[in-house]
Design a protein around this nucleic acid. Structure first.
Lengths: 217, 217
DNA sequence: TTTTTATGATAGTAATGCTATTATTTAAAA
DNA sequence: TTTTAAATAATAGCATTACTATCATAAAAA
């Protein structure tokens, strides 16, 4: 994790891990706007000032959580596509992992990925939709997102080296997987997905979308 | 415009129109997070309390502006595709209008669309990415977005009545047009667009994406 | 002309987003 | 084992934000 995202490394201490765990839970419960360090402090039985020793402000914490998610999902993707030869199968696996609600990864005791996924879907883009985006980008806060995008872009080129927009298609896969999920649950008339929680329909849509354009060129 | 979005209709009074005009300018300048009614009041030479007579809070104002944008762009699309027969040409026109920075529409003196477009690109999704999305949706705050989505979905079906995901593809066109624009300007390594401000590259990408999948099915 | 309506001016309050200080506990170094 | 440093808890405080309320005045309708 990028050291400029925190003041004290939250993964190294008990309190730090409690901050991570419960901030995901509390953002899930309240939404990022109503989430405050004071409320978080109450939940974990610490103090506001205590949390400020780890994170400069709640926006940095959101960026940290988002970066953590993209790092983690990037690892999952690398790991699960590692021994796959066919780029087509790789891409399908990627679409699946990005679209489907995730089971808790037992490896990381301090973050519940099944809550992290909806948090990223609803709040993740707020990490970069700010006036500070360029400054934050210079500090490499979005590196895990960029790495994932690059990884997916390379699989796309493996499949079809003539395709002209591998990176844009990669970021489109990530974003579409997330906001179609949000729309399905909250603004369903913006989608064709009939049943809430049926993420397989998003997978079907994305597979059709992606392979249509990279099969053709 | 949905009457539940405001306390007093801002389009009907001079002060109201000043609120709209300068809120777009100030959100463009400061970003939505740093935008406050107090700052806006200073800019327009009124008071905080004066603005609260028009809008309950700044989030309602953002929803209003977003709804206004989608209403306006929906009208532009209807108007400019009105006499076009070919659904293919219609869709291309739609992609163009959604992707390109917009010249100020002289018809609407109180809103500068050339500023509104980047504001929607950067801030628009915050209008619905909240815990109140379902409650707000019940009050039809997002109707103009839904109407636009439905309009585009119908053009897609005109082109190919067998395509399975017209609404999801429609919302994808809208969202992709906006966030690829944001990425191009702020996180360019997430795209393949080499030159900032070259929205024609986004148009090319989207045309390829859209027609690939609806040509095939 | 009266009366409603919109605006301006001012005050005030609870919550938020911090910073600072000191005391206490915990853990590592000597 | 003692010393000392580091981490945490407890508390206070402050500027700003996000509102609400009140009252005076100006302009427009009745």
């Amino acid at each position: 994790m990028n050291e400029d995202l925190y003041l004290r490394n939250p993964e190294e201490t008990e309190l730090g891990r409690r901050i991570l765990k419960h901030s995901v839970e509390l953002i899930y419960k309240l939404g990022f706007e109503d989430f405050t360090f004071k409320k978080l402090a109450q939940v974990i039985g610490s103090t506001e000032a205590g949390i400020y020793r780890y994170f400069e402000n709640k926006h940095k914490l959101l960026i940290y959580i988002t970066a953590w998610y993209f790092g983690w999902i990037g690892f999952q993707i690398s790991y699960q596509t590692n021994n796959i030869e066919e780029p087509k199968v790789k891409l399908q696996k990627i679409i699946n992992l990005l679209s489907s609600p995730i089971e808790d990864d037992k490896q990381t005791s301090y973050i519940d990925e099944s809550l992290l996924h909806p948090v990223i879907v609803a709040e993740g883009s707020k990490a970069y939709l700010t006036k500070q985006v360029s400054a934050n980008n210079k500090l490499n806060f979005f590196q895990p997102y960029k790495d994932l995008c690059s990884l997916i872009g390379n699989v796309i080129l493996e499949y079809n080296s003539n395709y002209k927009f591998p990176k844009s298609l990669a970021s489109t896969i990530i974003e579409v997987a997330h906001f179609q999920n949000f729309f399905m649950h909250n603004l369903s008339s913006l989608t064709d997905f009939t049943r809430k929680g049926k993420e397989t329909e998003i997978v079907e849509f994305l597979n059709d979308l992606v392979f249509s354009c990279i099969d053709r060129n």
